[in-house]
């Protein structure tokens, strides 16, 4: 295939994985950041870059159910992985309980940290459906927010637990 040869010459690779439940073939340099590939190849721009060094959490995604900083994951390492981004959190028009709670409590202000923060909160509740305040603080400590002072975000997590408590 001429396309493959072209990619070989350019040093690019093709990696197969699933993204938000769909099969995906991602092409890029082997060291390309998953963050960039998601945003540029798949146009999944909900995943944000805040620092590029794993400090702010704006680029949080799930790989095989675990939360990671997509700015620190090279494309080559997502071969065969299940990737979930913020675009995979709400099902169609039905928001996740965390997303609803963020809107209700004012957990989102400028919104740039919000997708990552929502991912961290969803991940926290997946691991622990009844987090204490200190669990919430620890669970979100990898996600920096400069607008809220975090209070409304804590409230959102608590409210989401209450709303979804029965279901869990």
């Amino acid at each position: 295939m001429p396309e493959a040869t072209e990619k070989e010459r350019s040093g690019k690779v093709v990696v197969r994985c699933t993204v938000n439940g769909r099969d995906a073939e991602l092409s890029g340099f082997p060291m390309a950041r998953l963050l960039d590939v998601l945003r540029e190849e798949l146009k999944l721009t909900g995943t944000k870059e805040g620092c590029g060094e794993g400090e702010c959490g704006a680029c949080s995604v799930f790989i095989n159910g675990k939360i990671v900083n997509s700015c620190l994951v090279p494309l080559m390492q997502v071969e065969g992985a299940r990737v979930v981004t913020i675009e995979g959190i709400a099902s169609d028009e039905q928001l996740n309980a965390i997303q609803e709670a963020f809107i209700e409590t004012g957990g989102a202000q400028c919104g740039i940290c919000t997708p990552g923060m929502v991912m961290a909160a969803v991940n926290l509740l997946d691991r622990n459906s009844e987090p204490t305040e200190s669990d919430i603080r620890a669970g979100l400590a990898g996600n920096l927010c400069r607008c809220t002072g975090y209070m409304k975000i804590f409230e959102a997590v608590v409210r989401a637990c209450q709303h979804s408590g029965v279901k869990r």
Binding site: G54, G57, I67, V68, N69, A120, G142
Partner: peptide
Amino acid sequence: GAIAIQNR
């Protein structure tokens, strides 16, 4: 780091 770092 935080959890996302500890996972990697």
